[in-house]
Nucleic acid binder design. Structure first.
Lengths: 247, 247
DNA sequence: ACTTATTTGTTCGTATGTATG
DNA sequence: ACATACATACGAACAAATAAG
């Protein structure tokens, strides 16, 4: 609550969509920095009074901003400014650590589990392996500035790196793991994106409320000779990330 | 229930992850066509008996397939094979009708609402317009084979096509609308992807259960000279579509 | 309208094997 | 060697929704 006062005190000129004007003004106040991340907005009634409108109109405006992820309303408490979502570009060279570091945050990766096991049907297909070929499976929780971002399972052919888990633990990054076993210029072949709701287990690991939306990303990475060397199935907290595809 | 019988009757060889073997076998039976889309699988107890395992083990396998969207369980009724998700490629030339038609389905688009209004803050930014410049807003429900796929709002600068709604109604496609006003080779500049839950209103329009996941796609299209001519905010039913990004 | 059987969902308990310290 | 924790798998019972008569 650094400031307060006139932040939202703008006159409403035009004659179209009152709630939109108000939404725009609140958004402007937020991006301008009048309200810090996590800070509580004035109450709906306060805002309504300042604009000289009914509280319903303010609620319509806040609903717009809520849907766009700028604010979050807590019943009985207030409306809070949400942290800006991290832009996560999907490119041929997509590496978590680089992306997070480039955004000025600290990338983290924690190996939750690992195993050596025969490839499930779909994974064998993706990696272009014979059915039941052995793979290394790594389950990794990734974070930015200690905030969980994604929960992913990564598979790679076992013959490429039988001790992948150990290497990962030392390297603390999949790209460094791959570099260590000789793949320095691997690249993304394709990325498939869907969405799901967080169940209790995923929510706990990602420090989310169950039911919050997840972006589900399935990807295949290939070596320079085109051979698939890695595939992953990851769930991103949609509240904290947005994928960006540039053409 | 065209078939039945031996479809799931496979022996379990290896000694690793029983439920995974079963999941793989069921998946195989589905992709092989032993069970048609919408068809009911045998009951959990039936499957358990055939494999000679506990029902919990079958449930673990079905949970895997449920999460991957291959089947859907209905309490008291049964477990059903889900329709395959439509692959929706995100490329420089991304046009809904072409994509759906190329998949062998019939593309549909219904204009739910339209208006001429000053651009909201974020839309003005995307279209590189001065604040409050007039835009045409089109709200469109798109479908494939009569099944709702996405619910989107499209904005374009009003000076480009003051009668965009009328043209759309005749052309029944945004790409044909743009072609009609002289933009034949527009292309996608960027695409931002997030996720959300369907609220009651969106769910009703998309014929979904409220709470189901949506893929939220924000995009900007540019003319050949690089000028933004169209931006859209669309929600895709994640149960019915997956986005594909190829590199 | 009511009953009964079927089917998925949930919660106990038990046993076993495998890591971890 | 031992204790602890964890995941897999089995078993039994019951709740809740659905379908059938």
């Amino acid at each position: 609550m650094a400031h307060s006062g006139e932040a939202l005190n703008t006159v409403s000129p035009a004659g179209v969509m009152l709630w939109r004007k108000i939404a725009d003004d609140i958004e402007h106040a937020i991006v301008r920095g009048d309200f810090a991340t996590g800070e509580k907005l004035p109450s709906e009634q306060d805002i309504a009074d300042r604009f000289g409108v009914n509280r319903h109109t303010v609620r319509r405006a806040l609903a717009e901003l809520t849907e766009r992820g700028l604010v979050r309303a807590e019943r009985g408490s207030g409306t809070y400014v949400e942290p800006a979502r991290i832009s996560y570009p999907i490119r041929a060279r997509t590496r978590f650590s680089e992306i997070i570091n480039a955004s000025g945050r600290m990338a983290g990766g924690r190996l939750l589990a690992s195993s050596k096991e025969p490839a499930p049907r779909d994974i064998a297909l993706r990696l272009d392996l014979p059915p039941n070929a052995m793979t290394i499976r790594l389950e990794i929780l990734r974070s930015a500035n200690r905030v969980p971002i994604s929960l992913g399972t990564t598979w790679l052919p076992a013959d490429l790196a039988p001790d992948a888990a150990k290497i990962y633990r030392a390297a603390r990054s999949v790209s460094r793991l791959l570099a260590h076993i000789g793949f320095r210029d691997y690249k993304r072949r394709d990325t498939r994106v869907s969405a799901a709701m967080a169940d209790a287990i995923h929510a706990a690991k990602l420090q989310l409320t169950p039911g919050r939306p997840l972006i589900v990303v399935d990807s295949v990475d290939i070596a320079s000779d085109g051979r698939p060397i890695l595939t992953s199935h990851a769930r991103f907290a949609a509240d904290r990330v947005e994928l960006v595809i540039e053409n």
